[in-house]
Design a protein around this nucleic acid. Structure first.
Lengths: 338, 338
DNA sequence: CTGAAAGCGCTAACAT
DNA sequence: ATGTTAGCGCTTTCAG
């Protein structure tokens, strides 16, 4: 049979590759080849098929394609989007994906490591070609396990595995930049604020390391306080620091969100940065740049980090197997708070 | 043949439903039924199958399931995540999805309407069971077209279509709350800041309407300025307002992000809210609550809105067909800026 | 360069 | 209550 034939039924069913083939009077296999511009299609064939695709408004069904081949979909798992730093990473991923032939699909998880693993699994069940993971709490063992199953890029976490890539900020360097700046401003009693670390690869470790390195370079005494990188954690930090005698003159709050807590607590108690306490941190979230806040911070180029992770994942999907672990150098943004 | 048989090959291939069936010595259809707990399975059957699933670590491949039935996946399309209000909506969606049997997969789009339609299509190609759209620029015609193909919920936009649901803030009421508060503080020259509106259903319209209603209720003259709900738009607004004679005493900036621009411009020019100009807005983004900012704003309960949209979408996927259009009442958060 | 046929993993309709 | 069979829409051998 064959020959071009319009759908006579009233209901608008989505056209399939068979419909296109009939319309163009060729085989489904031929249409498939044109669509993926695979090897061995004549110009004439290509033209007929594209015309039919156009005419019918055909779009390939990716999940059917996924049963034999790639779905052209990147899975992204991200911890709570309420941290604007993660949000910027996601934006970078989305922008870069839009420039590519892939779609990026994001799952938002919560802090708990089991949920994060489940999110990754659930994306694998949905036939993602590869995964970008923004996941501070997943264990390295689980990470390696996942990486054995499909292309994987760690984002915002220092990786070392042989089976995946990673894109992180050069946190040690960033912390050094902050300390160097504070020292140049004449500060000597500089506190670093960190939080408890359970897994390997998190920014906390190199940040503290960079802080120590820079402090010792100047013959200063490292002074590390453990708390939480949250607004409330920052508030507690401020209360602690400002009650101490002798009072520290500067704090590296570890992360912007904690620094905002510090500034808020100070503000409510009639204290101001940098006069009463110089405050600096890392992340350079948009809020840091608002004039009433004006928080000195290290820009980690989050959008670019997201974009790079995306490019690296696509490379890996398309064949690369040697691991790449990228450290993006941060830049200090000096503002009023320090 | 049949009988339980372990995979002898070295490579760890993902087990399929057939492997489970063999392991449990039952038919694949039986396994399928147990998995979806469909009608007609004995307790004994259920037990054997679940044991085999457990033993093999089997997970159903959703895209294969999707070829005949539901993928248990909700698609969410959101404009640039850099607006924290959208971020909070997404968090609500993610939280609610985690409580359900569905996974939420998010696409981040840019402002352009064509891209937003393409994002929705791309999720349909990937067999989502339904869509939640956070999309200010998509035309109503496109929206209706999509809604004909699959369950659809509009989030953060006032809908009226017969074929989809919507969850939005009661923006008119919110704007009235703001004006009432400003009037109670003694303000009479109150400006409203909006932005050009091309599509129907956006919050700009009811917000301006609510503003006008409240102003007229008090015999005051509405004074609307058109600009852009961005940081830069807010800065321009501040420059304009503070150059006017007589100077307005209060502004409803339309959206927090614009209000932050206003406050920033004022700060840089040595002016302070509310003394030089009272500033209020809508969205109640987290930054509004920081003490140095302390922006009066209307809380739209974004997280709950996201959760409700999710529940409504699931209802629709599971059979409801009458449209539901929800307006969530906002609450005024009075802070120092007004 | 093109087409026929088999099959990806699952479910639905139909036996039994 | 369980198993058999026939596809879902696509890609991929493998013949021509």
């Amino acid at each position: 049979v064959g020959g071009s034939k319009q759908d006579p039924s009233g209901t608008s069913k989505r056209p399939t590759i068979v419909d296109v083939a009939r319309h163009a009077d060729v085989s489904p296999a031929a249409v498939s080849k044109v669509l993926r511009d695979a090897y061995g299609v004549s110009a004439q064939m290509r033209e007929r098929v594209t015309a039919a695709v156009e005419a019918l408004g055909y779009r390939p069904m990716m999940s059917a394609r996924g049963m034999r081949a790639s779905t052209r979909t990147l899975g992204v798992s991200s911890l709570n989007v309420e941290n604007p730093f993660f949000t910027m990473l996601l934006d970078g991923v989305a922008q870069e994906a839009r420039r590519s032939a892939y779609s990026a699909l994001i799952t938002v998880t919560d802090a708990d490591g089991v949920t994060q693993l489940e999110a990754a699994r659930s994306m694998i069940d949905r036939q993602m070609d590869g995964l970008i993971l923004i996941t501070p709490t997943m264990s390295v063992a689980d990470l390696d396990l996942l990486a054995r199953d499909l292309p994987l890029v760690l984002l915002g976490r220092h990786g070392q595995g042989d089976h995946h890539d990673s894109v992180a900020s050069d946190d040690a360097h960033g912390a050094e930049l902050v300390v160097e700046h504070l020292v140049a401003q004449g500060h000597r009693r500089i506190v670093f604020h960190t939080q408890p670390v359970e897994t390997v690869g998190l920014p906390e470790t190199p940040r503290e390391q960079g802080y120590r390195t820079a402090m010792e370079r100047h013959g200063l005494h490292p002074d590390v306080m453990v708390g939480e990188w949250t607004l409330a954690g920052g508030e507690r930090l401020a209360a602690d620091l400002l009650a101490r005698r002798p009072r520290p003159t500067a704090v590296h709050a570890g992360a912007d969100i904690a620094a905002l807590g510090v500034l808020g607590w100070m503000w409510r108690h009639g204290l101001r940065a940098p006069t009463d306490l110089a405050v600096a941190a890392c992340d350079d979230v948009p809020t840091a740049d608002l004039p009433p806040i004006s928080l000195t911070s290290t820009d980690q180029h989050a959008v670019q980090m997201g974009a790079m992770a995306t490019r690296m994942l696509i490379e890996r999907i398309e064949g690369r197997s040697e691991p790449k672990h990228l450290l993006v150098p941060p830049a200090l943004r000096v503002r009023d708070s320090a």
